[in-house]
Design a binder for these strands. Structure first.
Length: 421
DNA sequence: GTCTGATGTCATCGG
DNA sequence: GTCCGATGACATCAG
């Protein structure tokens, strides 16, 4: 007889192991994923945008002793502005903001040759401290309220997440960061930022790919001509935290923080949604937006006076985050189902082989038993004699086994229908 | 350049 | 009708 235990089950583990290594679940992995910056994985810009492509220029932090060149500042500014500009569902004009003339609500612009530090930055606790860049860049003449407003967002981001603001800014809370945040804020009017026409992806009005800041980082696009196009005259509608004091920055140059989406300490910069939330001044972390239960989430949302664009972004972030986890779980289940079915197939195949072997064994045993029974039958039949000592004819008589074990010789024409009776 | 796996996202469906 | 999870389909990217 075959041994079922000898059947080797060949379980296809490759896919499941691979999955286990790649499909992460739970908050930690989700955070890792959310925090993963993939600047080199973003799709290229649509050619119609006509953005000049340049090389990725090193960025330097002036407070760290380096020099934040114009390109470096542009990188910073663009990184955030594009994460803003990709937001959809914002009540913004459909025209592309790449044409300054289309941003009619923008504050008067300083002519390009006058590009330099914002003149109103002097009112801010954090000032634009490095020298004016040598290149030209239009900048709004008038600025909104205190720039401390724009320092708040980074403070609000959960401590459990990467602090996007400082990370993006090379963890320097000094002038470059403030300039960036002011630039970001300047991108919003009451209807939100001007938005490229190409950004029409999310069903709730969020752009997903083209203008992602990570792709900009990766491709080193020149951004200065777009960054200052948004007006800078509206503060977020919710209370702001005190301004972030200007601190000397002893961190590595920003080029390190932007390269490969990592901070100078090698930490992952916030995810795209985190940067969106940062740019939109969402006063709570993406982690909470995604992971909070419905009731807690609703309570959290109602706790802050959020604008419609902010609510749309929050709902989109939550939906995408939930769906991301759901997709991961779905794929995990699919792989587990596949592995289970493969294992079941192997087991059933082995069972079939075992049953076939059993059947062969049984057939051989049956044939042997029949052969032995026939021989025994013939032997017994031949030993029987009638009163005259003659043998019985096999054509006329048969031997039958009674229920009590007795053997009877009966004529064939007297055989009962059921021999066992 | 092509192929493949991983991943994110969207659309859709069903509970 | 709305919400939300599940899942197929698609796009993108990396190796």
């Amino acid at each position: 007889m075959s041994n079922p235990g000898s059947c080797t089950l060949q379980i296809h583990r490759a896919s499941s192991e691979n999955f286990a290594a790649t499909a992460n679940f739970g908050g930690t992995q989700l955070e890792q994923r959310l925090g993963r910056a993939r600047p080199d994985k973003m799709p290229p810009f649509p050619p119609q945008q006509g953005w000049a492509r340049g090389t990725f220029l090193p960025l330097h932090n002036p407070l760290a002793g380096g020099e934040l060149g114009p390109q470096g500042e542009m990188e910073l500014t663009w990184q955030e502005i594009l994460s803003i500009s990709e937001l959809q569902g914002l009540e913004m004009p459909a025209e592309s903001c790449y044409d300054p003339a289309l941003c009619s609500h923008a504050q008067p612009m300083v002519p390009p040759p006058s590009y330099g530090p914002c003149t109103e930055m002097g009112d801010c606790s954090i000032s634009y401290s490095h020298p004016a860049p040598a290149y030209e860049r239009p900048f709004p003449e008038t600025l909104p309220g205190p720039c401390t407003v724009y320092s708040y967002t980074g403070m609000l981001i959960s401590s459990s997440l990467e602090p996007p603001g400082p990370a993006i800014l090379g963890e320097c809370k000094g002038a470059p960061g403030m300039v960036l945040e002011r630039d970001l804020a300047s991108c919003y009017g009451p209807q939100g930022p001007c938005k490229p026409q190409e950004d029409l992806e999310s069903d709730s009005g969020l752009s997903l790919n083209y203008s992602d800041a990570e792709s900009l980082e990766a491709e080193g696009l020149e951004r200065a001509e777009y960054a200052p196009l948004y007006p800078m005259d509206h503060a977020p509608p919710y209370p702001m935290l005190p301004p972030v004091p200007e601190l000397p920055c002893a961190n590595p140059p920003l080029e390190h923080s932007l390269e490969k989406g990592r901070s100078p300490r090698g930490e992952l910069v916030g995810s795209r949604d985190e940067r969106r939330a940062l740019a939109m001044n969402i006063p709570f972390p993406v982690e909470k937006i995604i992971n909070l239960p419905v009731d807690d989430f609703n309570e959290l949302v109602t706790r802050f006076p959020l604008s419609e664009p902010q609510l749309a972004l929050i709902r989109d972030i939550r939906r995408r985050g939930k769906n991301k986890v759901a997709a991961q779980n779905c794929r995990k289940r699919k792989l587990e189902t596949l592995v289970h079915l493969e294992r079941e197939l192997e087991e059933l195949s082995c069972e079939r082989q075992r049953l076939l072997q059993d059947r062969g064994e049984f057939n051989r045993t049956l044939a042997l038993t029949k052969q032995k029974l026939g021989a025994l039958y013939h032997q017994v039949f031949c030993m029987l004699r009638d009163e005259a000592g003659n043998t019985y004819s096999p054509e006329e008589y048969v031997l039958q086994l009674a229920a009590d074990g007795g053997v009877f010789l009966v004529p064939r024409n007297n055989q009962p229908d059921n021999p066992s009776d």
